[in-house]
Amino acid sequence: MLVLLGLGAIAAAALLALSGLRDQAAFFYAPADVAGNVPPPDKAVRLGGMVERGSLKRAADGVSIDFVVTDGKATTPVRFSGIAPDLFREGSGVVAEGHFRRDASFVATNLLAKHDEKYMPPQMAGKMHETRTLEEQR
């Protein structure tokens, strides 16, 4: 009896904690999450999504890059100065650490590459693979 009560209490506590965490435990914002509600410039946040194909441009200073992050619903332009991880590329996932500017563009101080759950040999990549990390999650 005591065991059952204990189990019930544990399950209830876990559900409560999870429902409380639901929105707070997200590792990053997606562009659609911040549309119309941009976090203030002094707040350090992470922005995650897919690097839009054809959006990656190297700036004139040689160390900065500009690209657009998309989650399929909204897009955010990002500027980053520094060394990007090897797996950072167009059409793949990225998590940028930094802050928003007033005009809703994003300044990244660090980039993390996010890959998806598909693994395959290189010969198959072109035919079968389409990276859709974030779209599939949503």
Binding site: L18, A25, F27, Y29, H115, D116, E117, Q137
Partner: peptide, 9 residues
């Protein structure tokens, strides 16, 4: 699945 994570699905 529940949250945005760096780890893949």
């Amino acid at each position: 699945v529940w949250w945005n994570t760096l780890h893949q699905g």
